[in-house]
Amino acid sequence: MITIKEVAEFAKVSQATVSRVLNNHSTVKEANKEKVYNAINELGFQPNSIAKALASNRSNSIGVLVGALEGSFFGNLMKEVEKKTRDANLHMIATCGHMDKKVEAESLHFLDSRRVDGLIVHAEKLEDEDLIKLAKHDRPLVVVNRHIEEISEQCFYIDNELGGYLASKHLIELGHRHIGIITGDMNKMDCRERLIGYHRAIQEAGIEPSMDYVYHGTYETESELNKALAKQLLDEHPQVTAVLCQNDNIAMATYDECDRRNLVVGKDISVIGFDDSVYCRYIRPTLTTVNYPIREIGINATNMLLNQLNGSKLPVQKRFNPELVKRNSVHSII
């Protein structure tokens, strides 16, 4: 096994210089960095990451907990975090909570065992108290897609109520009065907030709210539940002229059911989504939706960690307002 001593001898620098290069010290001259990196490549040196972490109290890694490893939402989040961390000479270690409280806790324990320097957490099932407790540790923490008042300075989120309101108001302004809605899992705060926005918009318009039009689904991709609910909604309420879907996956299930019934989305019925997933602009008709700036949230969350870890002064925005993205799946009936 190649040692730091051998790397130092090959590079003709001190062992201390090699150690500083491995630990990303800013005081090392570029010429010496190049010598050390050349020696590492030539000799095939592999530093012991655990020993290095113990010695420096830094692992040069960021831990990320996400709800799933599929779909554009979490994919875009991890893409931006990985890019920012790599640009800062750090590495990202990602794990998945699978929207299960026990698995989320186990995943955080795993990241702790890897001695990550900071955490970016998207937790669906852990209680607020769990995250508040986690925030009291010395390790920097940021929470995405969730606002907890006690640790609000560490939370990155959008105004979900506004997003639900904008989508609903758009349908109402185009003459729709019978608006069905398929939500995500109502245990999620963002689902409840989007539903509040829906109710606010219809109440402002003087429309009598009907819980009969509200069906509780899931954000998950290719969900049989969402397909069944889209069918049930249209079976039970043929008077519905528009379906408000709390994410784009639900909208895709609704598209499928409309196609099965030979209903043309954007002409016979209107459908609106939430998230502005990448496929929304490529399906036909293109999907009107509410954007969720998950890329920007990933960038800003990572900026905050880097500021805490490296003393950087990168810009940080924590609260974001969603915007309606108008495409071709909604039509006027006025």
Rank of each mutant, 00 (worst) to 15 (best):
A105Q: 13
D235R: 02
A205C: 12
K125W: 13
I272M: 09
E296A: 15
V7C: 04
T288H: 09
P47I: 05
N247R: 00
A205F: 11
S56W: 02
V144T: 06
F73I: 12
A135F: 06
K79R: 04
D87Y: 03
L134Y: 06
S56M: 04
V66C: 03
C258K: 01
Q246P: 02
A301M: 10
K33H: 11
D235F: 02
D212P: 10
N89T: 05
Q203Y: 12
G71Y: 07
N303P: 05
H137I: 12
C258Q: 03
R281L: 07
R86Q: 12
V66E: 03
R58H: 07
H98L: 09
N303K: 09
G67A: 14
E9N: 11
Y292C: 08
L233E: 01
S152R: 08
D159N: 14
I272S: 03
K102M: 13
E124W: 15
K125V: 11
V271H: 04
T286W: 11
D128F: 13
C245G: 01
Q308V: 05
G175P: 08
A205K: 11
D212I: 08
I179F: 06
H137L: 14
D276H: 07
L195T: 07
A55G: 06
R200L: 14
A201M: 11
K79Q: 02
D117L: 10
V240G: 00
N307H: 06
H178F: 09
S107G: 08
E204G: 08
D159E: 05
M92S: 14
K83D: 04
T3P: 03
Q239E: 14
K12Y: 04
L195H: 04
E6K: 12
I132N: 03
Q15F: 01
C155A: 00
I283S: 09
R194Y: 03
H331W: 07
I151N: 00
L22P: 07
L162G: 02
I120K: 15
D87L: 10
E149I: 00
N291P: 13
D235N: 11
D185N: 14
N187C: 10
H331P: 01
D259I: 04
P322G: 13
H91S: 15
I196L: 15
K231Y: 03
D100K: 10
L263E: 06
K133Y: 12
Q203W: 06
A55R: 06
L108K: 10
V103D: 09
V144Y: 06
S168N: 01
V81Q: 05
R114T: 14
E153F: 00
K5S: 14
L195G: 03
M78H: 02
F320D: 05
T302C: 10
C155H: 02
S270Y: 10
G97E: 11
G63I: 08
Y213F: 12
V7L: 08
V240R: 02
V81I: 15
V271T: 05
M186D: 13
T289E: 15
A230G: 14
N60S: 08
H122N: 15
K133I: 14
G118C: 13
V21H: 12
C96Y: 08
K136C: 08
P293H: 12
T286Y: 11
Y215N: 11
Q232D: 07
L131M: 11
Q232T: 05
E124T: 03
F274M: 04
D212N: 14
K318N: 04
L119A: 15
F110N: 07
I148A: 06
E257H: 01
G163I: 07
D100N: 15
A94F: 00
I2W: 07
N247I: 00
L324I: 13
A88P: 10
K5G: 09
